[in-house]
Computed example of a mutant assay.
Amino acid sequence: MFKITPNPPETDDDVSPYESIDSKKLHDAAERALDHYLKPPKEPTAARKPSRMFIVAPDMDTESLLAHACESLASASVMLSDFANLLENPHRNTMLGIQQNIMLGELAVNRALDNIDPQN
C-alpha cells in the first residue's frame, strides 16, 4: 500500500534565515551560547580559590604527609573489614572489594615512603 505524500511547498531559492530581526537575534544568541560552552576563554576570568575550612599545612614535609595517608588508609581498611563481617553476600563481597582497593592504595603509599627514605 502506498501512502500519498504531498511534495514540499515551493519556496524561493534566496530565502534567508535572517529575513526578520527576531531570527537574527535568535541566531546570535544561539551562537553566544554555543561559544560559551564550546569555546571557553583561554584565561579564566577569576582564579579558583579553594576553601580554607580544611587545609593541610603548606609546610608539611612529604614523608609526614605520606605517613599520615598510610595510617588513614590502614584505619579505613580495618573499619571496612569489620563492617564486611556484619554483612551477607553480595554486600559483603562489595565491602571486601572496596577494602582491597584501599589496601592497594596503602601499599602504594608505603612504597612511596620507602622511596623517600630507603631502609638500609
Rank of each mutant, 00 (worst) to 15 (best):
F2K: 05
I4M: 02
P6Q: 03
N7F: 10
P9R: 03
E10C: 03
T11Y: 10
D12F: 13
D12K: 14
D13E: 04
D14F: 02
D14L: 00
V15G: 13
Y18A: 08
D22Y: 00
L26N: 13
H27C: 15
A29D: 10
A30V: 11
E31S: 15
A33V: 07
A33C: 07
A33F: 07
D35V: 05
H36A: 12
Y37E: 14
K39D: 03
P40W: 01
P40L: 08
P41K: 13
T45H: 06
K49F: 10
P50A: 05
S51F: 13
F54Q: 14
I55N: 02
D59H: 10
M60S: 06
M60G: 05
D61W: 00
T62L: 03
S64Q: 05
S64P: 03
L65V: 04
L66M: 14
L66D: 11
A67Y: 15
A67S: 15
A67I: 14
H68D: 12
C70N: 12
C70V: 05
E71Y: 04
S72N: 09
L73P: 01
A74H: 11
S77Q: 06
S77N: 08
M79N: 14
L80A: 08
L80E: 12
D82Y: 06
F83D: 05
F83M: 06
A84S: 12
A84W: 03
N85R: 02
L87K: 10
E88N: 11
E88S: 13
E88W: 08
M95K: 15
I102M: 10
L104W: 07
G105C: 03
E106H: 15
L107P: 06
V109I: 08
R111W: 00
D117T: 10
P118N: 00
Q119E: 07
N120P: 02
